[in-house]
Amino acid sequence: MFRDIGQLAILAWRTLRSLPLIFRHYRKLIDQLFEIGNASLLMSCILAVFIGGVLALQTGPVMVEQGLNSVVGAVVGLSVCKELAPVMIAVLIAGRIGSAMAAEIGSMAVYQEIDALRTMNINPIHYLVLPRVLAVCIALPCLVVFADLIGWVGGALVCMSNPKIGIPWQAYFNDLSKVVDTLDVLNGLIKSLLFAAIIGLVGCHQGLATIGGPRGIGRSVTKSVVNAIVLILITDYFITRLLLTLDL
């Protein structure tokens, strides 16, 4: 595990150092952005509407019963943008995109395509890792913005339609906007940026480290998803502590 973390840190440093070269690989970046962003948007929105909905469903009736109608919008709004949307969308993307990265790069490693790149003096980090990591770092915060909005709407729909809650659309969003400000959304976006880097780097690292044929590819895919989710949740705790300390 410590070796994996060390290799991951080295990969992160090399990727960061190669950042100025992205202009040479912008076409690959655009392809990856399309694959990660566009193709994951619908799934992220479906996930978000139900996250907002279930949150309203769990908290709404209790709060309304206690006479705290005006708090429901605030609770759903803050929970979605600061915690649930960044984490849940990151988990979704780790499963959908991180695994695909590990599988694609892993099969390239097994079938000597990466060796072929090296013999042509093409650095696999510049050619394969950089566009993927950068694309997920751009796409994930964008998906989280959509997820925030759709999550709030999901909460509003449940508040409006559930007879035990019965908070009108307008009142819900008024309450939400009194508490949730730009910094709260930014807080979630900073988290999602870190999670994106974790997903991209773990997926690429597992892909590059693949050995042993199709079975090795399967192992890398599983490890990429599990490691990314574990790292996301651990990082989430520490970044939340840090952001609270910084009063963000």
């Binding site: 694609e104 099969s107 390239m108 079938y111 000597q112 395509e113 060796d115 072929a116 790149l117 090296r118 013999t119 042509m120 003096n121």
Partner: peptide
Amino acid sequence: LLSKYRIAMVFQSGALLSS
């Protein structure tokens, strides 16, 4: 070395990039 000399390798499987 790889910048100074042009060294090519033809792999057993061809190792063509499948994408």
